[in-house]
Every structure is written in C-alpha cells, then in structure tokens.
Design a protein around this nucleic acid. Structure first.
Length: 373
RNA sequence: GGGUAGAUGGCAGAGCGGUCAAUUGCACUUGGCUGUAAACCAAGCGACCUUUGGUCUACGGGGGUUCGAAUCCCUCUCUACCCA
C-alpha cells in the first residue's frame, strides 16, 4: 500500500494506496474537522488539487453522530467528496479540551463542548466512529501532554497510547477481516513520548510490535521550540520502517513541513493555512521561480497581514506570482482588505483558497524536487 | 417670545467635587494562532519626554467658587422637545 519511489537526502517520494485512490507523498491535508473546510466547497478543492481531506472522530460523533453517518452511508457521500479522507481519533481533543474531560486508564470521559453531555470515549468507540465515517486512514486513540511535560507524565502518555493502540488494532482487524481488500481502511499508530528520546524510542518500538499500516508522530507543536521538534524527528524517524508512511500530526509552518520532509516524513496536516486565512494572514512567495529550492534546502516565503492599513490602495494580487483562483482572478489586496473590514465571508474564502493553494503547491514542488533529483 | 432637557475622546454612551487622560461598547491600529470549542484571542488607541515614571493640553466657549472642577455657580453659543 505504500510504494517508495525516490529519495533526496532523507526526503522520500512515494505513493500511498487507499480505498478511495492513490495519494502521492509527501502531501498536505486540508482540515475539515466537522466535515467542512470552512468557507470552501468541492469546486474549490478541484482547483486546489488537494488529494485528501482530514476530519475528526470526536466532532463528527457529536454531530451528526454515528447513526446518521451509518444511515446516510459514510462521510464521503455526505460531503460529496470521493477522494481519500483521514480521520483523527479524538486524541487531540483529549489535549485541546482538557478542561472538559477526565482521563482514566480505560478511556476519557468527555463533557461535550456543545451541550455538556457526558460521553465515555474509548479506543473502541473512536474506532467505531471512524468506521461510521468510513475514512480511508484512521488514527489510534492516543493521549499526550503539552510542552514541557514531566517525565512521568510523558511516560504515562506512552503507556496509555500503546495500550489503547492495541485495542484499536484489535477492533480494526476484527472488522476489516470481513471486508474485501479494496475497501479496507488503513490504521496508523501514534508515537508519543514528549521531548524524551528514550520514551519516543520505546513508544515507536512498542507500536512497531503491534504492526500498523503507517506511523504518526504526535504530541508535537504543542508549545516546544522548533529545534526540539526537529530533534524529536531526528530521534524517532530512524526507528520507523522505511516501507510504511510517516505522518507528522498537526505541523505546521511551511519551513517546519520542509524540515520534516527532509527528515523523512510523508504526511502533514495543519490548521494554520485555513485559520490564518480567516484571521487575515496570508502566505506569499518572495521569489518568482518557485517556493522551494531544488535541493530542498530552503523555502522562500513570508506572511503578510492583509487586514493591515498599508494595503488600503494596493492593486497587487495577494501574491503576484501565485496561480491560485484568488490571485489569478485579479482580486486586489485593497479589495480583500476591504472585504475583511466589512466582515464579508468572501474575504475568508478567498484567503483560504490562497493559503491552501500555497501549501498544496509547496508539496507539489517538494515532490517534483525529489522526483528530479 | 416663553419653558424644559441636553452639549464628554472617531461614534455611541458612563461619570455628577479629589482615587479621571476619563468606565464600557463599536470603530481603528498592531500582534498571536501548529492532529480547529478559534469569523478567535491579546495589546494599543490626546501630545511630548530622560517612558514600572513625568510634563503639558483636554469633557461646547468665556468667567467664577474651591486647596482641588468633566462634576457646583453665572453667562454666551448650539441642539432637541413643549407652549405661544
């Protein structure tokens, strides 16, 4: 299911086969947590050319819920999106909604952030939800602390994450056995261990023993300096098999993605391009002839605040070198700033398209660089 | 012509003798967002300076009372409403 095709230094170029089609790696996943990439629709995705979307078990469990997903026939049909979907397990919400949950060895008791209703979230429930969603790539239910984390807490996160990964794997194997190979989903384990080298290493080894379709590196970009993140990657990636995809969860800024690619990571997701877009920050190129150096040494970009007064009269496109719908259509910085000023949804749509296009384009250039190295 | 109520920072609107360069909201400016409780959050928003502090100018104009006034008094101007 994962074919490695080329390498450039530590960077890898491959194809990941899923039930809804092949994905060229390395790739970036736009985030549709609740089944929608805010402000965008299928015609936007078609122009963007993203190969996959990411969604979330916790959020889709609350709405629309397992029953409706099953009755309607999975998220692909509900969203009218026929390409691959990866789902996060709800593990991130154990972190981000820490004030609304209680951790136990068996799972997590959540109080819904919507109506307060209590749910006991277990590895099995996460798997059941992800199956109702029908996602192509599913994540184990995991637990991780923020940064910095005490050694004992990090150690516990590894212990729980492995124990839960085993339960996820059992549930997933049992269900997939009965299905034809062509519709089987992939299950990924998630390496934890905070910034501790020995914990990260043993986490990876424990998950390898369980045997997953791919391995994610989680618990990063939670407040640690980027150098720590790179150090963790340097420690973890060599522990992972070369014939399985590697996924750095939730990362990150463009240069962080590039640094991770160079260290052998194949998959990425992050809210930054879409959230920053909604908040008026856009990524733009600083060189006309490409975003990424041919040897992957550098990425040429800057972030600008399009809401800033200095764009009041600017006739420039967001990024004059960009070919995305927003930039190619001739919308000026002045107009997009105006749209933000009057709080029109078109502002967020146009910047979301642009920022996602930046990430999709960055990944395409990275793939190209590895292919032609 | 007579009466009543008002006039506060870009706007709205508190304050009614000192703790007021002035609550709050909006607007504005600048930051921040990393497996999305995020169309969110934070800071700034009279001027100047030797900037955890200081000086000056400010609550319609002018004058006064007071140690001290956005706050009290007089007067002028303007606004709204009511009566002729």
């Amino acid at each position: 299911m994962f074919n490695l095709k080329a390498e450039l230094g530590g960077a890898r170029r491959g194809t990941l086969r899923t039930a809804h089609g092949d994905i060229e790696t390395p790739f970036f996943m736009p985030i549709a947590t609740k089944g929608a990439v805010k402000y965008l629709d299928n015609s936007d995705f078609k122009q963007l050319g993203n190969q996959i979307l990411l969604s979330n078990a916790y959020h889709l469990y609350l709405r629309p819920g397992i029953e409706k997903l099953n009755s309607f026939g999975h998220l692909h049909k509900l969203m009218n999106w026929q390409k691959p979907i990866l789902t996060d397990s709800g593990g991130f919400q154990v972190f981000s909604l820490a004030r609304l949950r209680k951790l136990t060895d068996d799972g997590v008791v959540f109080n819904s952030h919507i109506d307060g209703k209590e749910t006991f979230f277990t590895p099995e429930l996460s798997m059941e939800i992800q199956d109702a969603i029908g996602s192509d790539i599913r994540m184990c239910f995991d637990y991780f602390p923020g940064y910095p984390a005490d050694y004992d807490v990090a150690k516990k996160s590894v212990y729980l994450t492995t124990a839960w990964a085993l339960r996820c794997k059992q549930w997933h194997d049992m269900v997939m056995q009965k299905r034809s190979k062509s519709v089987r989903s992939l299950l990924f384990g998630i390496v934890q261990g905070s910034s501790y080298k020995d914990l990260r290493k043993s986490s990876a080894q424990q998950l390898l023993a369980v045997d997953f379709d791919g391995y994610a590196i989680g618990g990063l970009a939670v407040g640690e300096p980027p150098e720590i993140m790179y150090e963790v990657l340097d420690n973890v990636v060599p522990e992972l098999p070369t014939n399985k995809p590697r996924y750095l969860m939730g990362v990150g800024q463009p240069e962080q993605v590039l640094e991770a690619v160079k260290r052998g990571v194949d998959m990425f997701d992050c809210v930054l391009p879409t959230r920053n877009a909604r908040h008026g920050q856009v990524y733009i190129r600083t060189q006309q002839d490409g975003l990424v150096a041919q040897d992957l040494s550098e990425i040429y970009y800057e972030k600008i605040t399009i809401k800033g007064a200095i764009h009041d009269l600017s006739e420039l496109a967001l990024d004059p070198f960009c070919e995305c719908y927003t930039c190619a259509s001739g919308y000026s910085r002045a107009y997009i700033r105006h749209l933000f000023t009057i709080d029109d949804p078109l502002a967020k749509k146009l910047t979301s398209i642009h920022n996602l296009s930046f990430y999709v384009q960055m990944m395409a250039e990275i793939r190209e660089a590895i292919d032609y190295a």
